[in-house]
Design a protein around this nucleic acid. Structure first.
Lengths: 152, 152
DNA sequence: ATAAACCCTCCCATCATGGGAAGGTCAAGC
DNA sequence: GCTTGACCTTCCCATGATGGGAGGGTTTAT
């Protein structure tokens, strides 16, 4: 089948199929008449595998390793689980960071009237005025410089 | 002060300061001797504002709007709150998507022995074998094609 | 024969950030 | 005076995953 059909059956766009081939995630597809790519069922299975792994947030690099293990009948499931566990931990860390951001921002937003008046705790917070600090009602010098939050 | 000092005081790298200027997020900095940029306290305040907004996950585009509102003494706090609320909603949606991925993957990983044997529910799951489906113990044809999950 | 629906390869854009090259400036120390 | 080192400048390239689109070729059905 041609790339469009393979795309439809696998849920991976033709654009991405070519891309995965170009970066070596997939072996170069067979060619018909030396121009059009020619896919069979197994290729579609590979693509659907990739698609599902992407849907679970795995990076291309991780998917490459998962594909290799999938093809290796003698793999130890330990190796698969290690990749999955590391990925879970990574996602949970990202979730935690985002939840912190949401909590901080929600707190600021709750204190904001959100009306026609200009006073705004959200802007004050971004400007470095810590409304929660005891006895602190004036701007603080930006004396922070190195605490990289490592977010996103 | 020169860019390095402004970077140290604001927590924004020199590289990014130049970048923010080049994309118009910040007005072009003053120049000394027609070559080096020259920053004052207010510039550093702006940079620290940007830095905090980035730490809360705002995009550059959102930060541009927040900066404009910050500088406008007559802003309605409503507008600020709208931006913040939309951003909170966006982050929560992303968190929810990631939590779904984690839940799915954790489930697969829990069923995986993680030892030297090759049997692996994680790989089976990625290959499209739905272990949870009742009476389903053989591979499923990849008959999905259009349900874009809109994740990440 | 022509139109529609495919396919091909390339290049560019996104978003935020960093690396690094090639070169200019300035202050301190010899 | 001259070197050294620590700055600064601009410009280009890379990341990761994905899409857009140009310019051109092929196949198939009417």
């Amino acid at each position: 089948m041609r790339i469009g059909e393979a795309a439809r059956h696998s849920g991976v766009s033709a654009k991405m199929i070519r891309h995965y081939e170009s970066i070596g995630l997939l072996a170069p597809a067979a060619r018909r008449d030396n121009t059009y790519r020619d896919f069979d069922i197994r290729d579609v299975h590979d693509l659907a595998f990739i698609r599902r792994a992407r849907d679970l947030g795995f990076s291309i690099e991780e998917i490459g390793r998962l594909l290799a293990l999938w093809r290796d009948r003698d793999r130890p499931s330990r190796e698969v689980k290690e990749i999955a566990s590391a990925h879970i931990a990574e996602m949970e860390a990202r979730i935690a960071r985002m939840q912190e951001m949401v909590a901080t921002l929600r707190h600021l937003a709750e204190c904001c009237a959100g009306d026609e008046r200009p006073d705004c705790p959200i802007l004050s917070g971004l400007a470095g005025i810590d409304a929660d600090a005891p006895g602190n009602s004036h701007p603080r010098q930006p004396d922070h410089a190195d605490q990289r939050a490592d977010q996103r």
